[in-house]
Nucleic acid binder design. Sequence first.
DNA 1: TGCAAGACTTGCAGAGTCTGCAAAAGCTGC
DNA 2: GCAGCTTTTGCAGACTCTGCAAGTCTTGCA
Lengths: 193, 193
Amino acid sequence: MESPQQRRERRRAEKRQAIRVAAVKIALDEGLEAATVEAISAAADISPRTFFNYFATKEEALVMGPIWRPDELVDLLGERPADEPAFQSLKVVMRFLVVRGRAIWADMEPFMELRKRHPELAAKVRAADESKIMEVLFDAVKSRPGVTSPVHARLLIVASFGAAISAIQESLSTGGSAEELVEEAFALLESGL
Amino acid sequence: MESPQQRRERRRAEKRQAIRVAAVKIALDEGLEAATVEAISAAADISPRTFFNYFATKEEALVMGPIWRPDELVDLLGERPADEPAFQSLKVVMRFLVVRGRAIWADMEPFMELRKRHPELAAKVRAADESKIMEVLFDAVKSRPGVTSPVHARLLIVASFGAAISAIQESLSTGGSAEELVEEAFALLESGL
DNA sequence: TGCAAGACTTGCAGAGTCTGCAAAAGCTGC
DNA sequence: GCAGCTTTTGCAGACTCTGCAAGTCTTGCA
């Protein structure tokens, strides 16, 4: 049985998604400029003020949530054996996130299409988290086995994200399997590019 | 002798920098929130409207320009021998850019300090260009020798930028030599992380 | 059923960013 | 000192986003 708390959370998430869908539809049908908060809220049948109860910025409504959250990343990494080399841990975590992300996105063609047309949108939304992610992961990675210097730690992190993003990007533009692509990317990283 | 054209360009660049300095000073002294367009323009002794003749967005005034421009990147890459492996070409180009960037930044402590305090700012400004850079570089890199697949091309690009950014980041936070750090980063990439 | 507490929605006013337009001011070469 | 150029500025207006307070809806419980 669903608790009232859970129920509210679920409905909130559904409404959030409904607003997203409305926003993306407008952006695709009438162009990004037409997707004002006013237009989106009208389409989603809420007041403009309410829009901002669901999203902190307009852009947030136009892209899917990130497939990784800072705290989750740290948790996932923490679950890996303490003596596993950092590279290996990151690979496992990233593969998991990419595969899960692709599954969530399976029914989201409009979002992918918008992402293709306006790649800067996702980048801008992600930018806010990016530095926080680097910061927390840096601490989590630098003391792992196989990390020889601070630059090594940073590089492992950006390269891992690079591998994941490259795989997703390529998967988006050619339709290839994201899982195989992320595998390929990590293999390339491991063998020295 | 300086042509009138050059003269105008130089003065424009100087004014741009003066506005930047004023903006960063306010952000450091009174906090990011105090750095409104109105406050910045008052400090720089121009009208708010004029501010937007120099910067497309407020944030642009708060960070140094990027150390790479998309067209310059393509040019630099094009100057490398056609039979040089992609990895090597990228390494040379990136080292050049990082070294030049560091030199430009030598006198710019306030900008570095602001970047430390608000790392998301630079990321947000950079985000707009990021996807364009990836796009143009992807075309420039994918047909180079030593590139085995589209994912390989993308990965080379993100890894190279990752190396440059990691080196800069580390150099900023510890004061180490950016040149040595970028060297170290590429060596790590080459040997398989 | 009906009410009280809490959560969600909304309107409103206001601050702030950014743009287009046209007038004013400044500079340049002749 | 004038004619043609660029630069600056004011103004009006669209748009994003926030705080606040009032209104509406839901939920649990008597």
